[in-house]
Nucleic acid binder design. Structure first.
Length: 336
RNA sequence: GGGGCGGUAGCUCAGUUUGGUAGAGCGCGGGACUCCAAAUCCCGUGGUCGGGGGUUCAAAUCCUCCUCGCCCCGCCA
């Protein structure tokens, strides 16, 4: 293995087939980091349970769909460790131990938690502890680098504080993970809000060309541009935002033509759909191949889990030693 | 363990007092209008009324048992 810059842990909750927002917000960067860093990419199925606990029955398929997409966009199991969080039970042990040193007051500031309360919903233990589990995810691999967007910085700061507190109390076990800050293009959905599965405004990588075309035609546009020849405002148009991502060479001209009323929205959308399908086609082809080999996907996850677990087990040995915990012969497993 | 409140459309809820054809808003689908989309207007889709049993000509509504959820109190660790 060549010398790498450091070790990365990143993950996504398995929400099924991934969409353009996931692709631009995380996966594209994951792919590009594979050669420079030692990468651990996690399917955070326990995190998904914080909202899907009532009916987890779809999780299994969602995990398969997500990983199939990950592989289709170029995550390479020979370069990166691709695994499912719950396949590495050591995460839960570290989470438990960390939960002892995390004041509840830190967690009550979490915006997600506060929103939950605001909506009058009954919060549960797991939701409150979400940031602790995130910290465990990162620290258990002794990752020193975490790729994040600006909005995710506070979450990483929590992990750093937890690591500092642990290291001060018990000894220096964890590197304090650094943010690998990067600018992600804003990916709007069909209604102009941020693309998200929960808004139902998303375009999936697995969508067939006709579906992509249809969804693009349903995109929100500048409401001032009522007629084809009316001047539009590309800066507020989600279709233009996507042109900038997927039609880099023509985007500027399209923006100008829109602004002077030379280009109508129908034509503009048709051109975008074409570019989008051009970009998605190779992904779709690879996806079709992976779909025919589900057992290979399972095998990749099994190998990934074994590699991940190897590191996690090592970390937990250090953690138990640092905390001077009772340490029986854990290797002795019950007779089958 | 005790008590209070609640479960009605995909979502938020009204309707229960006084039994009489199950509603509204939002969402969703279609249409009109628009180069699309949005907005607006029109039309439509919407339900084991948590479950069983009972009273009654008739029960979302009254009685009863059960179940689930939230809150408060008590007890134990």
């Amino acid at each position: 293995m060549p010398q790498r810059k450091g070790r990365i842990l990143s993950g996504l909750r398995p929400t099924g087939k991934i969409h353009l927002g996931n692709l631009e917000g995380a996966l594209r960067q994951w792919v590009s980091l594979q050669d420079e860093y030692e990468c651990f990419y996690e399917v955070a199925d326990w995190h998904a349970l914080t909202t899907a606990w009532e009916d987890p029955s779809a999780l299994e398929q969602d995990i398969r769909d997500a990983v199939t997409d990950w592989l289709s966009v170029g995550l390479d199991p020979d370069k990166s460790v691709i695994f499912v969080q719950s396949s590495v039970p050591e995460h839960s042990e570290l989470h438990l131990l960390l939960s002892m040193i995390v004041p509840v007051s830190w967690l009550e500031l979490n915006p997600t938690y506060k929103d939950w309360l605001q909506e009058g919903k009954a919060p549960h233990y797991g939701l409150l502890g979400y940031p602790v589990l995130q910290a465990a995810d990162i620290l258990i691999y002794r990752a020193d680098t975490v790729p994040v967007g600006k909005d995710q910085l506070p979450h990483l700061e929590m992990t750093r504080e937890i690591a500092r507190r642990f290291n001060r109390l018990y000894g220096n076990v964890f590197p304090e993970p650094q943010a690998l800050l990067s600018e992600f293009p804003y990916v709007p959905g069909m209604d102009g809000r941020k693309m998200s599965k929960s808004y139902h405004n998303h375009i999936q990588l697995a969508d067939p060309p006709q579906t992509v075309q249809q969804k693009v035609s349903q995109f929100f546009t500048d409401p001032h541009k009522l007629r084809r020849t009316d001047p539009g405002r590309p800066e507020i148009c989600p279709v233009f935002a996507l042109h900038k991502i997927y039609n880099g060479t023509e985007a500027q001209g399209i923006g100008e033509d829109c602004r002077i009323g030379k280009l109508g929205c129908v034509a503009c959308k048709e051109r975008l759909a074409g570019k989008l399908n051009e970009a998605l086609e190779p992904i779709r082809e690879r996806r079709a191949r992976w779909e025919q080999r589900p057992s290979e996907v399972d095998e990749i996850l099994a190998v990934g889990a074994a590699k991940a677990r190897q590191e996690a087990v090592k970390t937990m040995e250090q953690v138990r030693a640092a905390m001077k915990l009772w340490s029986p012969a854990l290797e002795r497993t019950p007779e089958a």
